[in-house]
Design a protein around this nucleic acid. Structure first.
Lengths: 129, 129
DNA sequence: CATGACAGTATCCTTTTTGATACTATGTGC
DNA sequence: GCACATAGTATCAAAAAGGATACTGTCATG
């Protein structure tokens, strides 16, 4: 999900779809963006919101997002350090994507990450009787 | 981007975002879904549309999509074989996501997969003079 | 003095994911 | 007989992504 993953553009219709997800896949990117949608956050603030993302990974994903110009990194020359991350204009323009993801997830994802749905093979709680 | 990649659900706000992309990351999933949005396709039809996806990968991604109940696989008992893939109702419900991805990509992705944008560090064609 | 917070790095290792290639079986058309 | 199309599989190898853990330097607090 890094830079290279979605680097082919044969430009059949749909390639822009590919390009777009290419920027937000990566295990934590979408969530980071989602949280930044609510406003600027500092490194450790993000960390707290995105539980179980190691600092290494967080740095990693933030850097990639920054490289893709979806977010902005502002360093304050202070001690102890202070760094703020916020959505760039480009990142902000992703809001519709993020919101549609959220909406879909809220509507269709069960508590354990699998889409819930009427699977005929699996008995539904309170099913046929 | 397989089953396991996005399997953590701490259920902080945003986890449904994570869950949702979890289903459509994977290098080809989103594009496959995008193409299926236009209607049922056979295996090799998809292959032709999604250039440079090897059959192995295609099978792979299709199986995962099927496991997540986003698509349906219909096998015709014929020779030569005929298998049709189409969006399930659940998959169809992803249309808004796919469309927002497409829209964003069309608006913001340059010809080579990087977001285009006014980067102050890079001179724009026809820039300051 | 010891501890914690801040924003990360560095290193090592494992798991996942992807790619390349060749191969299956059957029927049709030449 | 030969090649082609269908929908895949099998095998091997490489690359990338992710995880675990420990560590950096400085300041404020107790």
């Amino acid at each position: 999900m890094a830079k290279v993953r979605h680097s082919r553009f044969d430009c059949t219709p749909g390639c822009s779809v590919e390009a777009a997800i290419g920027l937000i896949d990566g295990k934590w990117k979408a969530i980071i963006l989602w949280h930044l949608l609510a406003g600027t956050l500092r490194f450790n603030e993000i960390r707290r919101q995105v539980q179980n993302c190691t600092p290494r990974m967080l740095t990693n994903q933030l850097r990639e997002l920054e490289d893709d110009r979806l977010i902005t990194r502002k360093v304050y020359a202070q001690v102890p350090p202070k760094v703020e991350y916020s959505l760039s204009e480009l990142g902000l323009s992703m809001a519709p994507i993020l919101r549609s993801l959220k909406a879909w997830g809220d509507a269709n994802i069960g508590l354990y990450g699998k889409p819930l749905g009427h699977d005929p093979r699996e008995p539904q709680p309170g099913g046929s009787a």
